[in-house]
Each structure stands twice: as structure tokens, then as C-alpha cells.
Amino acid sequence: MSGLISAARRGFGLSDTNLGIGFASFAAFSFAFGAFIASTIVGPDTPGLIIAFYEALFGFVIVSTIYRRDLKSVGSLSRRALWWIILTATGLAFGFGSIYSALAHADLSVVGPIGGVVPLVSYVTVMVVLRGTERLTWRAAAGAVLVVSGVVLIAASN
């Protein structure tokens, strides 16, 4: 994978930052596109949890194929690493399971923006889990107020 990225970088003459922006933009579109597909198939016969399960199952097959070499070192995983991986997986499972279940009750144009408060949750979590890396500022607090106001606006109008 990294060889492919290096070749693409050389081919297009891109800087690391521009390549990073390109990757992040592609990731943003991918996340939104995944949610859009889910919104078209979720319903009474296809619950959000089932969609999230199969999505993760197919995702697992694909990423384990990409990282098949890393799988050899699975036995050397420390207990601490395993603990953080379990917590990450729990978060992901709640994230995908909940958002697809929400899509069974409302449109993507309503669910998407409310679920978009993720960076704010990450910011608060960083201050708790990775202490000393970020702090609370007046600007961040103002941004948080804006986010909450947006959620209230959407909730009130639906």
C-alpha cells in the first residue's frame, strides 16, 4: 500500500501536505457515501445493525487482505494494545450501529449533520484520555456552542 502511495506521489509530483489533503478529502467523501448507501437500504426488513455488521465483515476481509503481513505479529500484541483496540472497536461498533439504526427513523439530511459532531467529541475525549496534548480555549468553547445550537435547530425543526 505504502509503495503504491509513494509511486503515485512521485508520478504526480505532490507534496506530503497536498497528498494528505487529498487523502482526507477522499476519506470525507467515502464516509458520506457509505452513509448515503446505508440510507437507501435501511428499513424494517433490513435493520441498521445488520447493515453495520455486514459492512464491518466485508471491511475486515478487505483490510486483513491489505495488511496480511502485519497479521503475523498478532501473537506479540501487548495486553495494553489489545485493551485500546477493544475500546476502539466498541466505539466504532456503537458509531456505525447507531447511525444506521437512526437512518431507519429519519432522513440522512437530518441524521448526518447531528452525527457530524464527532470532532467535538474527539476534542473532549483527547482532553481526558491524552492529557496535556490539548486544552480548552474560548474559541473552542464558542465553536462547541455553535455545534450544540445547530443540533438544537435541527431537532426543533423535525
Binding site: 466504532l92 439504526s101 447531528i114 452525527g115
Partner: peptide, 30 residues
Amino acid sequence: LSLLAALGWGTGDVFSRKAAIYAPAGLVVV
């Protein structure tokens, strides 16, 4: 449900950064 999703993804994002300190990124993703 939407806020629960944001809570899951938001905390998971930070936990994955912590996991990547102790294990190769590929193994964390898998």
C-alpha cells in the same frame, strides 16, 4: 442514536490513536 454514533466514533478516533502507540497501525485497523 445520532449522538450515540458521534460518541462512539469520537471516542473511537482517540482510542485508535492510543492503540497505534502500542501496536503497528495495520494490526490496529485489522
